[in-house]
Design a protein around this nucleic acid. Structure first.
Lengths: 222, 222
DNA sequence: CAAAACTGAAAGTATTACTATTATATTTGC
DNA sequence: GCAAATATAATAGTAATACTTTCAGTTTTG
């Protein structure tokens, strides 16, 4: 589904030195970093390699992002901002709380296959990066400070929107927050297992994490 | 609860160059690496720092482990081996499938508070490391090869034991594997959120991840 | 008691993750 | 249209990381 030909997601300005959306080089950094991180993994990814790939000098990239960790936080924030936008846009015309919740879970847990929303961001590849790298962005010794600086605020907003939908569908359920965070993190995990540790998941080409979590929600709402 | 004063957990020999259980230096590496990784985090952890801490040379540590990633795989394998042992030991006298399942979930999701089983391994601190670092051991580009080499086999055995218990309690449930992997990974995640991103979990000092998952299982078994 | 195995000390290498400086190119504001 | 400001590129440099190698001394063991 085509939402808007050119959507703009705003990301915490503390994550960049210079806003990459304001120049050609900045957009190239975003576009190519997504592809390069997907290809070689975040550990092996360096600004030097990215510079070589886009025909730019390493030092120029440091004028946009302090370090590669901040760049990854930028990419993941953009992703969750985009997800929040889709979540609001695609559920606001559904009046039945249960149906709205099921739709939100579909949006949050399905694999992204298309690259439609923006020129320079390939959302399908970015989704792969989220599956592999998102968890690592907060499993660090700096998490408390970075949380205080608001680096995870968009992600928490997404979770809290899901919490509200769970509460609307079943007000007496006592673990709405834990359930919401479990679903979002858990679906990334199930996507990973489906591709790499198949023996400990039921998910495959015919049964997606979306089915698992929608089935789970049906049981809980009963 | 005291299981055995000296339990021995066997770990895939491919994970080490020389078995650390066979020498004083080896046991010191295990003991102090757990404490140091917990203190400074795995990213900042180096063999040089560990060497300084235990009064040994960096090069000596490389005679036990190829690199710090393998050392972390060793520690996490030991942990899951210990969990499997506890899971079997503490549930085999429970005949009711539902009660057995609830007990297994308790063991797998509760925070480890004591350090009772072994001389040189502090299980409570190791549990903290698992919460912070375990997910990162497989979210790498090398996961498929390392999986083929059997580096995650003990973890998969733990999940599969839980799968069998879910199936015994409710044979018609269609997502036993995904549920089992969700519970184990998810409880680590909930423990993390409880300490660092409190606004997106219901877990706290009075309500633990164990309560959340036991409540969830009750709903599913209905 | 000699050989083998283990440990420590020191030095060396390639890479990473930056920072600093200077030169050049491009944009913009008047 | 031109000066000033800004952006980018090129180069060099630094400290730390993640090892590897060599060699010497010490301990274990058959």
């Amino acid at each position: 589904m085509e939402l808007l030909s050119q959507i703009v997601i705003s990301v915490n300005p503390k994550l960049y030195v210079k806003n990459p959306e304001t120049s050609e080089l900045g957009r190239k950094i975003i576009q190519q970093s997504i592809l390069l991180i997907d290809e070689i993994g975040f550990e092996a990814f360096t600004f030097k390699k990215l510079g070589e790939r886009i025909g730019s000098n390493e030092s120029s990239l440091y004028r946009y992002f302090e370090n590669k960790h901040k760049l990854l936080l930028y990419l993941t924030s953009w992703y969750w901002g985009w997800m929040e936008y889709r979540m609001v846009f695609e559920t606001n015309n559904i009046s039945d709380p249960k149906q709205q919740l099921l739709k939100a879970i579909e949006i949050l847990t399905e694999k992204i296959k298309d690259d439609t929303s923006t020129q320079h961001i390939n959302e399908a590849v970015l989704n792969n990066i989220i599956i592999f790298e998102f968890t690592k962005t907060f499993l660090t010794k700096e998490v408390d400070q970075e949380n205080r600086e608001g680096f995870f605020i968009i992600y928490k907003k997404v979770i809290n929107r899901l919490v509200l939908m769970i509460q609307a569908a079943k007000p007496e359920y006592p673990f709405a927050k834990s359930l919401a965070s479990s679903i979002v993190e858990g679906s990334l995990h199930q996507h990973f297992l489906k591709d790499h540790l198949k023996t400990i998941t039921d998910c495959n080409d015919t049964q997606s994490p979306t089915h698992f979590y929608q089935h789970l929600i049906e049981q809980i709402l009963k």
